[in-house]
């Protein structure tokens, strides 16, 4: 009989954990778009949003703990599955043709670690205020910190590159997470793929607007 621990050791259970943690990370991305879009409405909008998030210390730490747990679970089980899958075919093919799988699906194991690196850079830049980009960091003035950062060309380009990779990761992830939970049937397949495409466009375009607007000097001259 499977108890919970053997279940989460099985390949299917590990994928369930990746899907659930991936879903929380995905939901956070959706929420994050609203924040990023407020940048376009000016300093009051986004700084007010920041104060709203910090309204209750208990609440924000509750969400932070949830996100951190999701990220740790997601990365841990991605790594475990990666090694299992690596070991499952010790001798590869000389000649290989793919019929159905998408580029996004086959590059999850590469887009993922890049995202991890970016998330750390992003937190260092805008949350912890470490000097990873040129210019000063002003505690609480989210607008100024974003503007400052994105004014440096390479910083804006790192952000734009990262949201493109996030889009690639979600193009597969945003339907794969449902499938890993057993929601796979020919009747809903096109629905899930459609959902993943729409969500990917909304999230990556939504997150790209702020750095792009500064990069092209539409905002901040």
């Amino acid at each position: 009989m499977f108890g919970l621990i053997p279940f989460f050791r099985s390949t299917i259970g590990k994928k369930v954990l990746m899907a659930v943690s991936g879903f929380f990370l995905f939901a956070f991305c959706v929420e994050h778009v609203t924040g990023a879009l407020l940048f376009l409405r000016g300093p009051d909008a986004i700084n007010g949003y920041g104060r709203l998030l910090h309204y209750s210390a208990a609440l924000i730490w509750f969400f932070r703990a949830g996100l951190l747990t999701s990220a740790v679970v997601h990365v841990t089980f991605a790594t475990l599955l990666y090694f299992q899958e690596f070991g499952a075919r010790p001798v590869g093919y000389q000649n290989r043709r793919y019929l159905r799988s998408s580029y996004a699906a086959r590059t999850m194991k590469y887009s993922g670690p890049f995202l991890l690196g970016f998330v750390i850079f992003h937190l260092a830049h805008l949350t912890w205020g470490y000097n990873v980009v040129p210019g000063p960091f002003i505690e609480g003035d989210i607008y100024a910190n974003m503007l400052n950062g994105f004014r440096t060309g390479w910083v804006a380009l790192v952000y734009l590159g990262a949201v493109s990779l996030l889009g690639l990761h979600l193009l597969h992830g945003a339907h794969s997470m449902f499938e890993s939970l057993g929601l796979r049937h020919r009747r809903i397949e096109s629905l899930l793929f459609g959902f993943a495409r729409v969500a990917t466009v909304v999230i990556s375009v939504g997150l790209a607007l702020a750095p792009a607007a500064v990069f092209f000097r539409i905002i901040g001259g």
């Binding site: 390949t11 299917i12 590990k14 994928k15 369930v16 599955l81 299992q84 899958e85 070991g87 499952a88 075919r89 793919y98 019929l99 159905r100 799988s101 699906a105 086959r106 999850m108 597969h172 339907h175 794969s176 499938e179 890993s180 939970l181 057993g182 929601l183 796979r184 049937h185 020919r186």
Partner: peptide, 28 residues
């Protein structure tokens, strides 16, 4: 020692009996 499912669907594309990937959903 088989690997896990990453929802690539290469399996159903080559199955000579056209077994549907719906059964993977059922297994999950």
């Amino acid at each position: 020692g088989f690997g896990g499912c990453t929802n690539f669907l290469e399996c159903a594309a080559v199955c000579p009996k056209n077994v549907s990937s719906d059964f993977i959903g059922r297994l999950n």
